[in-house]
Design a protein around this nucleic acid. Structure first.
Lengths: 197, 197
DNA sequence: GCCGTTCTTGACTGCATCGTCCATAAGTCG
DNA sequence: CGACTTATGGACGATGCAGTCAAGAACGGC
C-alpha cells in the first residue's frame, strides 16, 4: 500500500560513502550528499534518519565489506596459504600508494570519530578483530603447510601483521611511495619465523 | 613603538592544537578557538592569518616535537640502544591505549587533510622520514652492540618498526587494550634478527 | 604630553549547514 | 475509482561559520 521508493538504496549509500570518504564526516554536508545522489533532503532524512545515522550505516557496510574481503582473500586450505597472505598484504601496499587511493574509510572514520562516537569505535574494534582472525586462520594453515614455525603463536603474529597492515595505510596516506611500502611488507613477511626443520 | 601583544603565542597555539586535536580541522570553528584562548577573532586572524594557516602552524610544531622526542629518546651511543628502542615503542603502545589518549595529531591531521592539502602530506612524509632515520640510527647502534644481526638492513627494519608504530596508533584509536598493543610491540621486537653468533 | 603604530574587541556580513515541514505525487488495497 | 499510506522535492528557519572592519586601547619615541 505504500508508495515504493524511487531510488536504489545501495547506490545512494555508495554515493554517501564517497562523499564521506573524500571530505570526512564534519566536512561533508547533507546538501552535498543530496546533490550527489539527486535526492531531495526530505527523502534522505526520511530514509536514513540523519547525518550521523547515515554515516553509521555507511561505515558499517564498509566494515562488513572489508571483513568479507579479508575472509575471501585469505580463506581456503589448499597449500597456498602463505602465497595468499603475501598477495593480500602486498596488494594492500600497492593500493595504498596509488594517488587515487583515498585511504581506507575505516581508518579515516576511526581517526575522526572514534574518540567521540562509541558506535564507530566499537565497530572498528570488531572489524580489526575479524580481520585478525582471518589472518590467524591463514597463518595456522601456513603452519600446517610447513611455511611457518608451528611453535609460533599464530594469533600474536597475526596481530603484528594486522598492525603492519594499518601502519602501511597510515604511511600511504602521507604519500610514501609504493616500492617503499611493498618493501616494508616484504620485510615483515621475511621475518616471520620459519620452521626450524 | 607598536603596541605589544597581550597573549602568549605558544599558549594560544597549544589551545588551538587541543581544539584541532579533539574535533579535527573541519569540526573546529575559529570561534571555539577564540573562546578557548580568550582572544577576539580579529587578534587570531591578525596574528596567524586564517584557519588553514593556523592549522599548518600547529601541525608543523607538533611534527617538530614528535621528531625531537624520537631523537631524544632514541639517541645516544652507550650500549643501551636496544633498551631505548624497546622503551620507545612500548611506551607508545601504553600511551595509545590510554582512554585519554587522543591519538596523535599527526595521524588525525594526515588522515583528514593529506589528500587535499599538499602542505600537510609533505610535512607528514618528512616527519615519518625523520623518525625513520632516528630508528635506523638506533638499530645501527644495536648492531654495533651485538643486539641485532649486523648483516641486516637497518633501514628496512626501521621502516617496519615505524610502520608498527603507526599501526599501533591506528589500533589504539579503535580502543584496543594496552596489553594487546604491548604484546604486538613485543612480538615485533622479538622477531628482529639477532646476531647468528 | 602627543603621535604614530600596532594590537584588541566584538559587531557585522554573507554564506553554508542541519534538520523540518508541507504540498504534492505515486503507488496499493478495497 | 477513491481512500490511505508513503515517498518526493524544495522552501524555510535557525544556527553556525569564516573572515572583515572600524573604533578604541596600549605602547614607544619625540
Amino acid at each position: 500500500m505504500p508508495r515504493p521508493r524511487e531510488f536504489d538504496e545501495q547506490s545512494v549509500l555508495n554515493a554517501a560513502r564517497d562523499q564521506f570518504w573524500a571530505t570526512g564526516f564534519a566536512g561533508t554536508s547533507m546538501d552535498s550528499i543530496a546533490a550527489a545522489t539527486g535526492l531531495g533532503k526530505g527523502s534522505l532524512y526520511g530514509a536514513f534518519g540523519g547525518k550521523r545515522e547515515l554515516f553509521h550505516r555507511v561505515f558499517d557496510d564498509h566494515c562488513t565489506a572489508a571483513i568479507d574481503s579479508a575472509n575471501h582473500r585469505l580463506g581456503g586450505d589448499d597449500g597456498q596459504a602463505f602465497a595468499r597472505l603475501t598477495a593480500y598484504l602486498l596488494d594492500h601496499a600497492t593500493a595504498c600508494a596509488e594517488p587515487s587511493h583515498r585511504g581506507c574509510l575505516l581508518a579515516k572514520g576511526t581517526a575522526e570519530l572514534s574518540e567521540h562516537d562509541e558506535v564507530v569505535s566499537a565497530r572498528a574494534r570488531k572489524t580489526f578483530e575479524s580481520i585478525n582472525q582471518a589472518i590467524t586462520a591463514d597463518l595456522e594453515a601456513c603452519q600446517r603447510n610447513g611455511d611457518i614455525d608451528p611453535a609460533a603463536d599464530a594469533r600474536r603474529l597475526a596481530g603484528l601483521l594486522l598492525t603492519v597492515h594499518r601502519g602501511i595505510e597510515a604511511l600511504g596516506k602521507a604519500g610514501t611511495d609504493g616500492s617503499t611500502l611493498r618493501g616494508i611488507t616484504e620485510t615483515a613477511l621475511a621475518h616471520l619465523p620459519r620452521p626450524s626443520r
